[in-house]
Design a protein around this nucleic acid. Structure first.
Length: 172
DNA sequence: TTAGTGATATCC
DNA sequence: GATATCACTAAA
């Protein structure tokens, strides 16, 4: 099966669905040095203002503005002063849902992932659809996916921390 | 286990 | 203007 670029309709769905479907897909970054490809092995869903773990849960700010954009928009966030975290906006415009790309095969951890792919804040507010330097491909890879609790969100309510909104690739 | 890092949000 | 916080990593 030939690789197929994922377009707007793929992201224009509920973030839990998108997060699950993104596992096993290939993240592609077209840099001046060449094209980098990495298979996504772990994602997390952040489902809007009702989700206390989501950055936008208490309203729109300068930082979370991007989450309100339309599906397929890239949200790159600098965390702890040194790590870029990569998110893809999903769902309806004006509804702050997003999928955090937590890890790829050969890059265990969101900070390492972005370092390997040369992703920085300049990609914030760009899109993964259309003519851009960053996109996601489906190469027909089928895999088993398991769910788990999200991590690193100790500030959220216990209820939200217990949600199984993390999706992990199971390697056979 | 702990330090380090810097943008953002929230408080004066 | 100042401080507290944070979806992390590396080193021990």
């Amino acid at each position: 099966m030939k690789s197929k670029k994922l377009e707007y309709p793929f992201f224009h769905r509920e973030c839990l669905e998108v997060a699950k479907d993104l596992v096993g897909k290939v993240l592609v970054h077209n840099t001046p040095e060449g094209i980098l490809r990495m298979r996504i092995s772990e994602t997390e869903a952040y489902c809007g203002e009702a989700d206390t773990a989501c950055h936008a849960h208490k309203g729109r700010t300068k930082r979370t503005e991007v989450l309100y954009a339309k599906a397929g928009t890239v949200y790159v966030y600098l965390c702890y002063g040194m790590h870029w975290l990569l998110n893809i906006v999903t769902g309806e415009e004006e509804d702050p849902q997003a999928v955090l790309i937590r890890a790829c095969v050969d890059a265990n951890g969101p900070g390492k992932l972005t370092k390997k792919l040369s992703i920085t804040g300049i990609l914030n507010n760009t899109s993964v659809c259309g003519e851009t330097e960053l996109w996601i491909e489906d190469d027909g890879f089928a895999c088993e996916i398991k769910t788990d609790k999200r991590v690193g969100i100790g500030y959220a309510t216990q209820e939200d921390q217990d949600r199984q909104w993390r999706f992990i690739l199971v390697n056979e």
